[in-house]
Write a protein that binds this DNA or RNA. Structure first.
Lengths: 347, 347
DNA sequence: GTGAAAGCGCTAACAG
DNA sequence: CTGTTAGCGCTTTCAC
């Protein structure tokens, strides 16, 4: 169980450390004979360089920028700061420097401005949430041209420039919501999918959840529940929802595809609608309180904190230990109710 | 954003690297004057030693032994091997050597024998599942006397010799099961808690789950569901269960406190009992199939793989990076149904 | 008490 | 093409 060093290999192959290093790093300038001898040995003993020593030499400070929507404008993003802080704490003594940047989730302009600012800083990598599709693709291109690694999380875009995505399978999470709904509403009752958006930049996000939700109920078509959709901008929510519910008296369940389930609850309570089951997303404090009192039945947890922490960790370990960055990491779709809530909040 | 080294500090304090090192490690033999100067500087710049360099010198191989029940006797433990392999893979190039040892979950003797064998190997740390309470306490003492760090996972014991526990809040997981059950069985129907055990070594485990389950239903006492208990050894399960169900015709839900829900299903199916909802534990392949076909409604995931991986990781990072080992880590209580199952299996 | 020096494993520059 | 050498930051030994 000995662990071999480059020195050992040099001795065994009858060459110097320098030559072994050249073989390992394919720097050329090695005779065929030496190359073969060393290669053979490396394979035989399954040589793994000591990551500590490798890094020690390379005394560089790695700069990573995290770009996400301002949590003050949408508290969904708050846990990301905790995830970032955890990574900052954990890696600071390794010479990793993580900086946070916020853009306004309602402004493509602000998204572009912030990213241009980051671009000028020339960090080693950027982790961002690509809320705006088109702009994100172009931003990613710019980063790549500048030799900056780009990872994304939470929202997915299709771009070769992006090395890694951390998030959730949204279609499937729609199915999960549907099954839970199916379980808690009466047979043959009506349920409605409510999309609430400020600027429709979440369109893709919400569509996938809707598809999954419908897909599930589609398997029971004819015999079972009836699914409708209400798609509104946030400022019209009150009026539209009331109207909808008045003309659809049999609604027994609402699936809110964003983290704004608590807004729907407000309206239901003000207008004295009872016996409507609710399923939504994300452990915002407003949602948590309603979950605890069982006014919301289930929340699906998208783990923004873990997403952020993982996205950053992949980048750091790539720099520090030359680990491969997973191109796609789909987190579990956590079902949260009032009883297991605490166990998620602790983590 | 410069990162300071002991060389910098030595220069600033007008002393040598050696003196700085002595101050940092409180090795004494430093004049008050030098001590004060260096201490002040260390605090001012919040000095963090470079963990890579620190470890490089210390070219030691760390031996960690993992002791758990033989997965061939109880497949619940299978994922632990995956978790262990992940840790082995990840840390092997850091000079960490993790070895696995199995004992028979039905034999205290085998538990003791295996641990004695491990003790003789004098590893740096042991991670074990203390299935047998009394024996585990004594085993932990022996390890500690030999200067071996002991961590435990999955099962908890009360022992000062144990530095870390990774697992789940079982009482709370019982409550989670109860709430789910409450949601899927008719009002005022009867539910039963089934404990299945080979040797009653899981007694504490199962009791806590039962307490949580009862606690939840207790909050609805009088108006609601009636909870009974069936406690059997595995070999008597068939007969006892049939008998119980025949004399309790109104049972509409069964909560199985171990990973053996599939055994209960077998019996129900053979005897043509219908419309009984099932909630159990753990993603064993037998359970997974029944979950997929919705014969089991929910499984609570105890994440044995993650438990193992985390338990090992804490030890490794303690040795390698002098990180503190968390004395207690409670994992989320994951609710798994047929729709979010896939997202857990991938992870 | 203290400083100087060697060395952990790896990299990279330099001389041959 | 190849070997030697210096040095990353820290620890430890040794001599003063």
């Amino acid at each position: 169980m000995k662990t071999y060093t480059i020195k050992d290999i040099a001795k065994l192959a009858g060459v110097s450390k320098g030559t072994v290093d050249r073989v390992i790093h394919k720097r050329g300038k090695v005779s065929q004979k030496a190359f073969d001898a060393v290669t053979k040995l490396l394979e035989e003993i399954d040589y793994q360089p000591n990551p500590m020593a490798r890094n020690l030499k390379n005394n560089k400070i790695y700069d990573i920028c995290l770009v996400l929507p301002n949590p003050e404008e949408d508290s969904f993003w708050e846990p990301c700061i905790l995830g970032a802080n955890q990574a900052i704490e954990e890696f600071k003594s390794f010479g990793v420097n993580i900086k946070l940047f916020f853009y306004s989730p309602t402004s493509t302009k602000s998204f572009q401005d912030v990213n241009n600012k980051v671009l000028k800083l020339k960090p080693d990598a950027v982790l961002l949430t690509p809320l705006f599709y088109k702009e994100s693709v172009s931003v990613a291109k710019n980063y790549q041209l500048a030799g900056i690694i780009v990872s994304i999380f939470n929202n997915q875009i299709d771009s070769k420039q992006v090395v890694s995505f951390v998030g959730q399978n949204l279609f499937q999470s729609g199915r999960v919501a549907a099954q839970l709904m199916h379980m808690i509403v009466p047979e043959k009752s009506e349920v409605v999918i409510v999309h609430i958006d400020e600027t429709f930049n979440n369109a893709i996000h919400m569509q996938q959840k809707e598809k999954g939700f419908r897909d599930y109920f589609g398997e029971f078509r004819g015999t079972n529940n009836n699914v409708s959709v209400l798609s509104v901008k946030q400022e019209n929510l009150y009026q539209s929802l009331i109207e909808f519910l008045k003309s659809n008296q049999n609604i027994s369940g609402i699936f809110v595809t964003t983290s704004k389930a608590y807004k729907v609850v407000e309206i239901l309570q003000q207008n004295n609608f009872k016996n409507i089951k609710l399923i939504g997303y994300d452990l915002l404090t407003e949602n948590i309180d309603l979950l605890k009192s069982n006014i919301i039945s289930f929340l699906i947890h998208q783990s923004p904190k873990t997403q952020t922490y993982l996205g950053l960790t992949y980048l750091v370990e790539h720099f520090l230990f030359k680990k491969e960055i997973p191109s796609k990491k789909l987190l579990p779709i956590d079902i949260v109710n009032s009883e297991n809530l605490g166990s998620y909040l602790e983590n």
